[in-house]
Computed example of a mutant assay.
Amino acid sequence: MSKTISIVIPCFNEQESIFLFYDAVEKVKPSLRGYDIEYVFVNDGSKDQTLNILRKLHQKDEKSIHYLSFSRNFGKEAALYAGLQASKGDYVAVMDVDLQDPPAQLIPMLEGIEDEGYDIVGTRRMNRKGEPMIRSFFSQLFYKMINKISHTQFLNGVRDFRLMTRQVVNAVLQMSEYNRFSKGLFSWVGFDVKYLEYSNRDRIAGKTSWSFWGLFKYSIEGIVNFSEMPLAIASYTGLVSFIISLVSILFIILRKIFFGGSVNGWASMISVILLIGGIQLFCLGILGRYIGNLYLEAKRRPIYIIKEKN
């Protein structure tokens, strides 16, 4: 009985890329040691012709092409989770449809698992050529920060593009939390991992749906999901603020007793009040973020809703 590699492909407004992606993977298929390919496309509420193209592609290759279509846009994390749940292959790959993840890497990935005994073979960009400088700067800053405050380690430049054994996929699927950060989940489950390095590539077609603000919110989600350090920072900030205020009060009292200094001055008083109030709001914001995540988890809403599947 032949073995199968499932490829999970989230899609959001990717009408220009789908056929190009399929053709590129099919060219690599003869080099994959006789493995069959199962394509699991996940249409994440696209507003263009993505769903119609997936229907046509399924008609072209009914045996290999499978797709899920969400009732609305639930985000890439939900699409990845749905695709992993739907996959049936012995090995499972996660890829972007824009061909920034080169299909030819599937060959050494498969070798890494079958010949070298790894459970996961992922990819890591050696550079960020072609990205805006400000995005690259904040991305590197994010990795430095999260590795200092989280027990789960994140390598800079690691992509979602990876090939995994069925055992790894089952482990990831056991974590059914609503607030998901896949890079952290793939790292948290452990197993033996190898990374292949390659140069950054431009999209083959279309435009990215990731804005700077979207990436920023995604990074905050990663920090909140994989570190309790912000809560400790809030506590330390409150403690430091209390000590500074206490010292200031003692200084004013002693100055009045020994030197007769004046305590007048509404401007300085307002400045202190605003400083302390700002610190309090900052700490409340951190607490609110964690409480908000707890609230979403407690409601137990589905991670995604499927409107159509073949």
Results as ranks from 00 to 15, higher is better:
196 L>I: 12
80 L>T: 09
46 S>Y: 04
83 G>Y: 02
159 R>L: 02
189 V>R: 02
119 D>P: 10
38 E>N: 08
254 L>C: 02
88 K>H: 11
207 K>F: 02
248 S>E: 05
22 Y>T: 06
251 F>T: 04
255 R>K: 02
238 G>T: 13
254 L>V: 00
248 S>H: 07
223 I>H: 01
173 L>D: 04
28 V>C: 10
210 W>C: 10
91 Y>R: 07
49 Q>L: 10
36 D>E: 09
210 W>S: 10
187 S>R: 12
254 L>G: 01
13 N>E: 09
90 D>W: 02
302 P>S: 08
198 Y>T: 02
303 I>P: 01
65 I>K: 01
66 H>A: 01
214 G>M: 09
125 R>G: 04
232 A>S: 14
34 G>V: 05
299 K>Q: 15
254 L>Y: 04
14 E>Y: 01
75 G>P: 10
36 D>C: 03
58 H>L: 03
286 I>G: 03
131 E>P: 00
307 K>F: 06
298 A>W: 05
53 I>G: 00
48 D>W: 03
196 L>E: 02
139 S>L: 15
189 V>C: 07
88 K>V: 09
276 I>S: 09
306 I>F: 14
217 K>C: 07
243 I>M: 11
234 A>H: 01
143 Y>C: 15
167 Q>L: 09
291 I>M: 11
40 V>A: 02
263 V>S: 12
271 S>N: 14
221 E>N: 13
221 E>P: 00
37 I>R: 01
